[in-house]
Amino acid sequence: MTTATNTVQANSESNVWEGGQAPFGVKYGKLMMWYFLLSDAFTFAAFLISYGAIRFTVGQDIWPEPNRVFDAFPVLGHGYPLLFVSLMTFILILSSVFMVRAVQEGHQMNKKGVILWLGFTILGGIAFLSCQAWEWAHLIHNGMTMTSPITYEIGGHGSGAVFVGPLAFGQLFFTITGFHGFHVTTGVVINTIVFLNVVFGTYEKKKNYDMVEKVGLYWHFVDLVWVFVFLGFYLL
């Protein structure tokens, strides 16, 4: 792919903007996807920046410690700070890697490879969503909702002293991870549609797997956003 691009560049580096051709050497569909993601990035940025502003308003003193809020793991119980969310992060990163592999196999016109890796990608997405469902259910069960504040015991489980956080924490958490989860869900649905198209040979007939590349961009974007959500809610 790079060589092909390079030859085009070598032939016409000076006049790619002269009309009659795509100046970036990219078809309109992929370009549209990129600019759509840019636009979507502004939505997420608006959410995360609002998060920052509200957190500064509340003040660091009464903002909950992520290590205390997110310290549960299925089956094992409490006392494992950030372990579960690390697992979620790895699942999403791996899913993203699978997607890169699917795109690469698509460039090689290797239908079986695309099916394999796209299948893994979808499984990764479903696994991530399941993890998020568990985490939400756990937090709601512990009393944090859109209208009631987060509470946890300051000295760890069983110590008795209870910390009551601001309402804003839960509201922002559910809104932003929810909006991200909505994107993951959409991604899984779109990936599944593309997966079926791959299986039925739609793209083989078209002689290009561009659609896999386009949904791939969307999928990586979801991963990219998660990196920043992870930073905001779990690391800072």
Partner: peptide, 10 residues
């Protein structure tokens, strides 16, 4: 992952 490094700089 998103391959931007390999696209044209513009």
């Amino acid at each position: 992952f998103m391959h931007l490094k390999y696209e044209r700089k513009a």
